[in-house]
């Protein structure tokens, strides 16, 4: 079996990875940290875009899979001294398994009901994080070991490179997928499910596989996040984070893999700007008030650019 060296998505991703790998040597630590976060969120959103943009479904529970990946990797590392490299594989596997089991309930539902079901799943899993003392309960999980390569323990720069290397791999895989029969069939079921069924396409199985794949992306991202932060608690994987992943998908453009990255970058950057600006404008505003503004931005984008920023860009290129 021989693999394609790189599709167009993969080639661009390699260039972006090279830019990131070079930039981290010049950027102040704060920006390197943001870059890492954008990479981790991009990975989740690329997976979510397969499920939302191509299969045409909505998941409001993606943060739960990030959390499952993070907690699995953390438990493996702390309690069983498993290297985070294997922890990431384990995190992805457990997230995939949970997604697979849940899909038998959730994917029987359609559209809005499916969105509500995934929302409920996310909340229930977050409750488990909060209540399960074995994984630290509400006080969370501390001193999660970092990634290592030989004697080298990853520093913030290495995490930025790692997260963008995973984005490159993730976008390469997804890029192959969307151009294959598999990707076309996903588009077919999102456009006309009954029509595709009449040709012998099993929409539930397709959606299930895509949902599980999106959980794998989220699980890997979660494992990297856990080691990068070295501390996780249930609030890191709340419903708000799930909403943010949907925001990233929609802002970037649903049927676009690079849109996922653009969306993640915009939401992270906007979050930082709002965090700095909101207290200046509204000194009494506290906590998640920035989410209010993020919501306003989303509504504006939905009205002005219904196909997202990437959709707008590709239209401009064609025109």
């Amino acid at each position: 079996m021989s693999f394609a060296p790189a599709n167009a998505h993969g080639r661009v991703a390699l260039v972006v990875l090279a830019v990131v790998a070079a930039a981290v040597w010049f950027l102040p630590a704060y920006y390197t940290g943001l870059l890492t976060l954008i990479g981790i969120y991009s990975l989740v959103t690329i997976g979510l875009n397969l499920f939302m943009g191509y299969a045409g479904q909505v998941s409001l529970g993606q943060a739960a899979f990030v959390g499952i990946g993070a907690y699995t990797s953390a438990v493996l590392a702390v309690d069983l001294h498993v290297t985070p490299w294997l922890g990431a594989v384990g995190g992805a596997a457990v997230a995939a398994l949970v997604a697979y089991v849940l899909s038998f309930v959730a994917l029987r539902l359609r559209e809005n009901l499916l969105a509500l079901a995934t929302l409920a799943l996310g909340i229930v899993i977050n409750v488990v994080f909060n209540e399960w003392e074995f994984i630290g309960g509400s006080s969370g999980f501390k001193d999660i070991p970092g990634f290592t390569l030989g004697a080298f323990t990853f520093d913030p720069r290495a995490y930025a490179i790692l997260s963008w290397a995973l984005v490159a791999a993730g976008i390469w895989f997804a890029g192959n997928l969307v151009r294959s029969s598999f990707g076309r069939t996903l588009i077919a079921i999102s456009a006309g499910e009954l029509g595709a069924q009449a040709l012998g396409v099993d929409p539930e199985k397709l959606k299930r596989q895509t949902f599980v794949l999106s959980a794998v992306y989220a699980g890997v991202a979660g494992a990297v996040y856990a080691s990068y932060q070295s501390y996780i608690d249930p609030s890191s994987f709340s419903f708000l984070l799930s909403v943010n992943f949907v925001l990233m998908s929609v802002i970037g453009g649903l049927r676009s893999l690079w849109g996922a990255v653009i969306g993640a970058a915009i939401v992270v950057a906007l979050g930082q700007v709002l965090q700095a600006l909101v207290p200046l404008v509204l000194p009494s505003a506290r906590g998640d008030f920035q989410q209010f503004f993020l919501g306003a931005v989303l509504i504006a984008i939905l009205i002005l650019l219904p196909r997202g920023l990437a959709g707008r860009l590709s239209e401009a290129r064609r025109a």
């Binding site: 079996m1 021989s2 693999f3 394609a4 599709n7 390469w172 895989f173 997804a174 192959n176 997928l177 294959s180 029969s181 598999f182 990707g183 069939t185 040709l199 012998g200 396409v201 099993d202 199985k205 397709l206 596989q209 895509t210 599980v212 794949l213």
Partner: peptide, 21 residues
């Protein structure tokens, strides 16, 4: 019927194997 069992179709498509392409 599509997709064929198990998830092999997804993996082969995502890895972009020459055969699949």
């Amino acid at each position: 019927s599509y997709p064929p069992p198990p998830a092999r179709a997804l993996l082969v498509a995502g890895l972009g194997t020459q055969g699949r392409r």
